[in-house]
Amino acid sequence: MGTSERVVPADARRRRRPTKQGTVLSEQLIIETVLRLIGEHGAAALTVRRLGAALGCDPSAVYRYFRDTDELLLAVADELIGRTLRDWRATGDWRADLRNLGLRMHANYLAHPQAAMLTCTRVTGRTHEIRAVETILGILREAGFPDGEAARIYHVFVDQTLSFAALDASTLVLPERARALEAEAWQETYARLPAAEHPNIAATAPVLVAEMSRSGYPAALEMMLAAAAGRLQQVKSGR
Rank of each mutant, 00 (worst) to 15 (best):
D147Y: 11
I153V: 10
R131D: 13
T171G: 12
R231P: 09
L55F: 01
E40D: 13
E176R: 11
T47F: 05
Q233W: 11
Q28K: 15
P9Q: 15
T47A: 07
M1K: 10
M223A: 15
L167Y: 13
G230N: 05
G39C: 12
A54R: 03
V34L: 07
L232Y: 04
R86W: 02
G102M: 05
A228F: 12
F164D: 02
F164K: 02
G148W: 12
W186G: 01
A90F: 04
E5Y: 12
L162Q: 07
P146F: 00
R16L: 00
A143G: 06
G138T: 06
M1V: 04
A54D: 07
G56C: 01
G138A: 10
G56I: 00
G230R: 12
N100A: 15
A54C: 07
L140D: 01
L74T: 07
E5K: 15
H155V: 05
E134T: 12
R64P: 03
D97P: 01
G138C: 04
L232H: 06
A166C: 13
G82T: 07
G22E: 00
F164I: 05
S237G: 05
D147A: 13
R95T: 03
N200K: 08
E182P: 00
A75I: 09
L74P: 08
L232N: 04
E71H: 13
A12N: 14
L46T: 02
R99Q: 13
T119V: 11
L137E: 15
R177A: 12
A115E: 00
Q28C: 05
T189K: 08
L167F: 14
A54Q: 06
E211W: 10
P59N: 08
E222Q: 14
L193E: 01
L225S: 02
L137A: 11
H41S: 03
A151V: 10
V24H: 00
N200W: 12
Q187P: 02
A10F: 08
E149W: 10
D168E: 14
E197T: 08
A143W: 02
P194F: 02
Y217H: 09
